[in-house]
Amino acid sequence: MIKINNKKDERKDVLRLENLTIKFGGLTAVDSFNGYLKEGELIGLIGPNGAGKTTIFNMITGIYAPTYGTVTFNGIDITGMKPYVITHLGIARTFQNIRLFSDMTVLENVLVAEHSWLQNYKARKILHKHEPEKFPRPHWKPWFWSAVLKTPDYLKMERHMKDYAYELLKAVDLDKFAHLKASALPYGPQRKLEIARALATRPYLLLLDEPAAGMNPQETQELAEFVQDVRKKFSVTILLIEHDMKFVMKICERIYVLDYGKIIAHGVPEEIQNNKRVIEAYLGDESYV
C-alpha cells in the first residue's frame, strides 16, 4: 500500500478542496475542509452521521455554494458553478437515498444522463478556455430542432446513445432489465443502475454517496469488487462516502475522517484504524470498527 508521506505523488490533481466551509444560519456544517484526489485514486470519506459528508458532495457538485473556500477540478475553479455545468465538466454522483427516475425504464434512466452530450456547450467552452490545445473550440448545434425534426444527424446520435447505454447496462449486468421500470428493480440493482447512470455522463470523477447502505455483507462484498471494477474499466477517480468501515478499509487507498464538519484524521486505512480520535468519534457504535 502507498504511504502518503513517503515521497511526492507525481500524479496530477483531479480534485482539490481548499478551506471549504459552509454555514447554514449560525451552524457551520463543514469547517475548512482541505483535501485532494490524485488521478485514478479511490478515496473514502467517513464520519458519524451528520458530520457533513454529503454536504461536501453537495458543494463539489454545485448544489450548495460554499461560504468560503474553493473547489478546483482538473485545474478549473468550479466553485459556485451550476450543477449541470459541473456534470458536463466531468463530475458525476450518486445519491444517499437512491434518486432514480422511477417512472422511467432502466434504459431511459441511462439515456437521460447521456442527454448532456447534446448540450454541454457551456462546459466545453470552459474547457476550451482552460486548455485550448486539448479541447477545440466548441460549435453550438441546434440539437433541439434536430431532435424535433428527427434529422439524420440526430437519429445517428440517438443510436449512438442507445448503443453506449446498452454497453453500460451490460457492464453492470442490467441489460436484461433494460425495458423494466426503474422502480421495479430490487434494491441492489437500483444502486448499480444509479452508478451506471452516473457513468453515462462520462465522468472523470465519480462521487458515490453511501453505495453500500442497506446491503447485506454478501452484497457489500460484491459491491466492493464492482466499484474496483468500475474504476478500472472506466478509468475514473472515485470519492466515496461510506458508513461500512470494512468496506472502506478494504477498497480505499486513503481515507478522510470527518466529525462535526472538521477533518479529524487523514491517511491510509491502517493509520485510520489505529487513530485514537477516530476510535473516539465512533465510540459507542462498535459495529463500525
Binding site: H88, H115, Q119, R197
Partner: peptide, 9 residues
C-alpha cells in the same frame, strides 16, 4: 435535483 446532477440544465 437528480436531473441537474445528470447534466440537465
Amino acid at each position: 435535483v437528480a436531473a441537474g446532477a445528470m447534466g440537465i440544465n
